[in-house]
């Protein structure tokens, strides 16, 4: 009798399968990967001003779009596709096999990470070539960028899996999830400059991870002189780290305890 494969090795296998499935769904590939670039083209072409010395709106917007991409590819995509898989009965079938829940979650995390890497490369590439977006030269900024992306992906994945229990059906999932994301994008300073928003909007946004991810990404892509123009007059990266970890723990807790494999 051989041993059952470990949860991690099955998770990696699931990741490969998820990517293969995803890459064959042309609509979702286009929507998920290209949409942020399309938004960059629109906003970058409309708002050509500088918002501070050496800071163009495109520069500000790229930071916001990368943060927002983490929320789109993780939270939004998973909270919409998992209820669909549940409706199909695909999750129930998986539940009947020796594959553990953790492998399924690892597979989703791999899918989110891979599409995030592609999205970031496309945003930075387009931004640099067509909209004069500057890349950071300080190694510390890239270190910040790395932990923000990793922690942000993990947090967004966990919250997406956790939130997948909320929509009653796969068909209705998009209507439940998308408005939440769009409102958070406006409130968190992705499409609009955060400091120009009303205080109540800023305070509401500060409860959720997107605002902190956006602010963290600004600390990477904007000059340090801009920090004084933030609400707190600093980048607050330590606080961002703590808040993302708290949301990650909340997401993992509900994913593990409440995940639904079956419709009823």
């Amino acid at each position: 009798m051989n041993k059952i494969p470990s949860a991690i090795s099955l998770g990696i296998r699931r990741g490969g399968l998820e990517i293969k499935q995803f890459s064959r769904q042309r609509e979702s590939v286009v929507f998920t990967l290209l949409f942020p670039v399309i938004l960059l083209v629109i906003f970058g072409s409309v708002f050509t001003d500088t918002i501070a010395p050496n800071v163009t709106f495109s520069q500000y917007f790229v930071a916001g779009m990368i943060a927002s991409g983490l929320v789109n590819t993780g939270f939004q995509a998973l909270a919409i596709t998992i209820p669909l898989e549940r409706d199909f009965g695909a999750l129930k079938r998986l539940r009947g096999t020796p594959m553990p829940a953790s492998s399924y979650f690892i597979g989703k995390a791999i899918l989110v990470s891979v599409s995030m890497v592609i999205q970031i490369l496309m945003l930075l590439g387009f931004g640099a070539i067509f909209f004069g977006v500057d890349m950071p030269t300080d190694i510390n900024k890239w270190i910040t960028f790395t932990w923000l992306t990793l922690l942000g992906s993990a947090c967004s994945t966990a919250l997406g899996i956790a939130f997948s229990i909320v929509p009653k059906s796969g068909r209705g999932a998009s209507a439940v999830v998308s408005p939440i994301v769009i409102v958070l994008q406006f409130f968190s300073g992705v499409f609009l400059i955060f400091t120009q928003l009303p205080t109540w909007m800023q305070q509401f946004a500060a409860l959720f991870p997107l605002k902190w991810l956006t602010q963290g990404m600004r600390s990477v892509f904007l000059p340090d002189s801009f920090a004084t123009q933030e609400v707190a007059k600093s980048w607050e990266n330590g606080k961002t780290f703590v808040i993302l970890v708290v949301w990650l723990v909340i997401g993992v807790f509900f994913s593990v305890r409440k995940f639904k494999w079956d419709r009823d």
Binding site: M1, P5, L10, L17, Q21, F88, A90, T97, P98
Partner: peptide, 30 residues
Amino acid sequence: NRIGIVLQSTSDSGDLTVIETIEHFSGYYS
């Protein structure tokens, strides 16, 4: 690992081939 289940109604997104799906599931078992 010791039982097999054929549910009443199951479907998939359908983006995998028959052999890819069966090969993948075979990896779940000892």
